[in-house]
């Protein structure tokens, strides 16, 4: 089973929820797909045993064969190539590695070379023996999606995998959550939290994924949020009240369920609730 944890808004507590959930399940796999700013390792303290480069392919021009006809520039939808007549200039960051230039070059003057955009790290956490993966995007690289794909290539469908998604609602969030069985959306009791939650829900509706909500830093006085859930029949799976002790524990890199064992039970219940929901859906289907 694959459960992803996403949010729309950043800083609502995705990583806290994803790591605590992984720690509450036996033999879980935790996978950090927030490759721009991966933080799961800060709470799970894994011992890393491998680091594999993730690469994208970039065109390389053979100037012995190149006639500067400009076909490669014409077929590049990303404007990553410029024909200077004495050189074909490449803007690395804009290249998606689609291979169109290589394919259409009439002189067969283009080959492709691999460029490392980041790393996939693999390790194990002492906390409940969690198997750990994350992706770390190199500084200056712009595209997260290919690295997220490399991380997700490590998924073993026989294991319960918790995916920690990047914030936002664009391609890297979708790349992270797609193919999950269930998505947990973590929000907070503020207008920003509510606004971005609605955007994240729209994404999940488009990709037709079952989801439930966890409210972190829960404050029942923020009635707009309660109203929204009531009106739309959205199930709240867990409410985590604001507690300065939890925030302080997080700040030091200590997984909250270690200092507050009563908290662990909440996550065991959360997992069971998700499992039940999925089983019921399978019966319905």
């Amino acid at each position: 089973m694959i459960i992803s944890v996403a949010s729309g808004k950043g800083g609502t507590g995705k990583t806290t929820v994803a790591t605590c959930l992984a720690a509450a399940i036996e033999n879980a796999v935790y996978m950090d797909c927030d490759v721009e700013e991966p933080n799961g390792h800060i709470l799970l303290h894994p011992e890393f045993y491998s680091k594999t480069p993730s690469q994208k392919m970039l065109p390389k021009i053979d100037y012995v064969k190149c006639t500067f006809c400009g076909k490669c520039v014409e077929v590049c939808e990303y404007n990553a190539l410029i024909n200077l007549k004495t050189e074909i200039m490449l803007f690395d960051g804009m290249c998606h590695g689609c291979g169109a230039c290589t394919y259409f070059c009439p002189e067969k003057a283009i080959t492709e070379v691999a460029k490392t955009i980041g790393y996939v790290r693999e390790g194990a956490s002492r906390i409940n023996n969690i198997q750990f993966y994350d992706g770390v995007l190199n500084i200056g690289e712009e595209m997260a999606a290919p690295l997220i794909k490399s991380v997700k290539a490590k998924i073993d469908i026989d294991k319960t995998t918790i995916i920690d998604s990047p914030p936002g609602t664009s391609c890297s969030m979708v790349e992270s959550v797609k193919d999950s069985d269930f998505c947990i959306l973590v929000t907070e009791s503020t207008p920003f939290g509510l606004h971005d939650l609605q955007l994240a829900i729209e994404v999940l509706k488009i990709i037709d994924m079952p989801y439930g909500v966890v409210i972190n830093k829960y404050d029942k006085s923020f009635v707009e949020m309660e109203d929204y859930f009531d009106r739309n029949g959205i199930e709240v799976l867990l409410k985590i009240p604001f507690d300065r002790k939890i925030a302080e524990s997080y700040s030091k890199g200590i997984l909250p369920i270690i200092n507050f064992p009563e908290f662990k039970n909440e996550f065991v219940l959360l997992y069971n609730r998700i499992k039940e929901k999925l089983e019921m859906e399978n019966v319905d289907a």
């Binding site: 950043g10 800083g11 990583t15 721009e36 700013e37 933080n39 800060i42 960051g93 995007l137 500084i139 690289e141 712009e142 595209m143 997260a144 990047p166 914030p167 936002g168 890297s172 997080y250 700040s251 030091k252 890199g253």
Partner: peptide, 27 residues
């Protein structure tokens, strides 16, 4: 935006001064 990827670079273009807002957590 959060992160260090393409929308961050696009936001930075033309910037004279960046204000970084951080919090005292390891993350």
């Amino acid at each position: 935006p959060p992160g260090i990827g393409c929308p961050v670079n696009a936001s930075l273009a033309g910037t004279d001064y960046v204000v970084l807002v951080t919090e005292p957590t390891l993350a």
